[in-house]
Design a protein around this nucleic acid. Structure first.
Lengths: 216, 216
DNA sequence: CAAAAAACTGACAGTCATGTCAGCTATTTG
DNA sequence: CAAATAGCTGACATGACTGTCAGTTTTTTG
């Protein structure tokens, strides 16, 4: 009996994996477009080409589905920053990080939007993450920048604010993509545009921290 | 008859003005917390201490109420930037603008969040604004920066990207306030914190554009 | 190929929200 | 103070969505 109730834990078969992936992809779009409350399981099911009740077979509730996406986003997100250490050259490391984040805004705009929307609306589903995991991780990363400063490698900017600056400036091109396109008079940013964004941001931010652009 | 149907246009009495203001205040909070779809007229009414049906007496639909707020936000928002001209000193003008925007994030976080959420989710209610008014205004502002560059007063950064940088960096402290507080280990940013933010951003961005900090 | 497991679905119950309207009450005004 | 206007509200019609469950179909496996 107890065994039976746990049976669902075994996520087996090819069918399950395929369908879960398909549902997650569709849900990511739907949540990005309409937010958690605005998204409907019905729409997600339609996007995925699967009957609504079948979506429920894979994900017990809308919140389950949402959380699966949200936690996935965060993992992917933190990865790019986690590799930077105090031994790296600051100009190179920060330049690479800015570039990676800009490209991430290009390749994963949905994820960025879902995350942003969650925080804007009070992060009701990330309170545990923000209360436990986030701060230690964030402090560690700020520590790397602080170390560079103490080694005299860059200006004594506040590491916390510098990180926020990089995050906001880069994520802007995913979250506010619509406004950016409207301002530039384009229907969509090209690969070149994103490179331009990355170059401009890198130039301003590195120089602003007293760092020289690394020659490529 | 035609006269009667227009009668509502005359927004008269003190009672109406009071109640409308109260409802708008409550709606701003509700929309910021839950987004357009997540907000309910019922909750707004409760916040305002007014029966739900009475809210409908003042605003025909939820969308009407939302639009009243959204358009108000945009007007307020554009004001700070609209005063800058090519004759101003760039360091001073940009510094003041950054400061104003940071302080705006402090005093009007709800408005910022509502605007951000609207754009993130595809700006379905601002399509007219973005198709008509926004670009000319935005180009004019970029033109001011371009003029400074041509006068040799600052580095040849792309004006468009510079504006986006300032917007994103400053609005971040309203929209992502929760993440910022979590990262800094505070429950709320103080007046001093916002001044620090403004100082740090100004320092990095101005230096990044080849401008000297104006001495206060 | 038959039994077991996984995948699927139609029908249902329950909840919550919006918007309308007729008729009520309070306030203003001549 | 009475007529006119503004403000208010209960009841109702309507629709959307979530989540459950029993029972069916498909797939896997021994």
């Amino acid at each position: 009996m107890a065994k039976d109730s746990r049976a669902k834990v075994y996520k087996s078969g090819r069918i399950r994996l395929d369908n879960e992936a398909q549902i997650l992809r569709s849900a990511e779009q739907e949540f990005a477009e309409h937010g958690f409350q605005g998204a409907s399981i019905n729409s997600i099911a339609k996007r995925a080409g699967i009957p609504r009740t079948n979506v429920h077979y894979y994900f017990n509730s809308k919140l389950d589905l949402y959380m699966a996406i949200l936690t996935g986003v965060i993992e992917l997100w933190n990865d790019a920053f986690s590799r930077i250490t105090a031994d790296d050259d600051p100009a190179e490391a920060l330049g690479a990080y800015i570039h990676a984040k800009v490209m991430y805004s290009r390749s994963n705009p949905h994820a960025s939007k879902i995350f942003a929307s969650e925080i804007i609306h009070g992060a009701p589903n990330l309170s545990v993450y923000f209360k436990k995991e986030f701060r230690p991780w964030f402090n560690a990363k700020a520590g790397v920048i602080q170390a560079w400063i103490e080694q005299g490698k860059m200006d004594a900017v506040d590491p916390y604010y510098l990180i926020f600056l990089i995050w906001s400036a880069t994520q802007h091109y995913a979250d506010f993509n619509l406004q950016v396109c409207a301002g530039l008079g384009k229907s969509k940013l090209t690969s070149n545009d994103y490179e331009d964004v990355s170059d401009n941001l890198t130039r301003i931010i590195l120089k602003g921290c007293g760092l020289k652009l690394p020659d490529k």
